[in-house]
């Protein structure tokens, strides 16, 4: 395959960026999208030019490190697929592909396509945990958890923290990310003691980081590589309202 890539190049956080076009040929349809970028980078380096910086690590769709807006879609056109699991057979010969970093001011660009997502860590640090010090735990089977609840908790816990939900949102809202964490713990008996405090604190921190509000367009669910449902946002809103009204 032969492709034309329009890629966002930006030397550092404070430098001005611009789109640069590259032609790449000899691309195999069996390559992953990142392997296609590897090929481009190896060729750039062989010419003595700087390679395109992008974040990646596990390359099996679970670490959440890879990102990229591909033709305007986070993680590209395939549903439920991270960029590292997207393969070139989903594109056609001669295609022009636009590649940009996540678009959100709370995720500032580090270099080229790599961004800083530490805002997510700070949200989790405010309340995305159950305070259970090591050694406190009762026997694991002491508290039965209905399979249905455990399954919903697992659905929510599948979030990989990649930030696609923020990148796609016109408000750059982190609501799906916050809701997934809150809903994961909120569905488990172990998560009840801190349930409402957790919601208030995480939402406050998301606001402080500059993420926008949710206006229910559900783009986040469509863009999420793990298909986290917006139902979790409804639960988050319910818990938030209850906590705000009744001071729980």
């Amino acid at each position: 395959m032969k492709l034309t890539l329009d890629i966002w190049r930006q030397k550092s956080a404070n430098a001005e960026g611009k789109m640069v076009s590259y032609e790449v040929d000899d691309i195999s349809p069996d390559m992953s999208f990142l392997e296609m970028l590897d090929v481009l980078n190896e060729r750039l380096l062989e010419k003595g030019e700087d390679s395109v910086a992008f974040d990646h690590d596990c390359r099996e769709g679970i670490c959440g490190m890879c990102s990229l807006m591909i033709n305007g879609m986070p993680h590209g056109p395939e549903r439920a697929t991270t960029t590292c699991q997207l393969h070139m057979r989903k594109f056609h010969d001669g295609q022009r592909i636009t590649i940009e970093p996540w678009r959100a001011s709370s995720f500032p660009v580090v270099k080229d396509l790599a961004v800083d997502r530490s805002a997510f860590d700070r949200i989790v640090q405010k309340g995305g945990f159950i305070s259970a010090n090591t050694g406190n735990a009762p026997d694991a089977n002491a508290i039965p958890i209905p399979k249905k609840d455990a399954d919903i908790a697992m659905d929510a816990a599948a979030c990989i923290g990649c930030g696609a939900c923020v990148a796609v949102c016109k408000n750059s809202s982190a609501m799906l990310f916050v809701a997934a964490k809150a809903s994961h713990f909120g569905h488990l008996p172990q998560g009840q003691p801190e349930r409402y405090e957790r919601v208030i604190k995480m939402v406050e921190q998301a606001d402080a980081e500059g993420f926008g509000s949710c206006s229910n367009t559900y783009d986040c669910e469509a863009a999420c590589p793990k298909e986290i449902s917006v139902r979790h946002i409804a639960r988050l809103n319910r818990d938030y309202l209850r906590a705000s009204l009744f001071g729980e």
């Binding site: 945990f129 159950i130 259970a132 090591t134 050694g135 406190n136 735990a137 009762p138 026997d139 694991a140 089977n141 508290i143 039965p144 958890i145 209905p146 399979k147 455990a150 908790a153 697992m154 816990a157 994961h184 713990f185 488990l188 172990q190 998560g191």
Partner: peptide, 22 residues
Amino acid sequence: ANIIDQCVAQGVPFAREYGGYL
């Protein structure tokens, strides 16, 4: 055995049977 106890206490959503046990 302590590890499983600890992880459940932290909210790790291990697979469960219909009776609610692991």
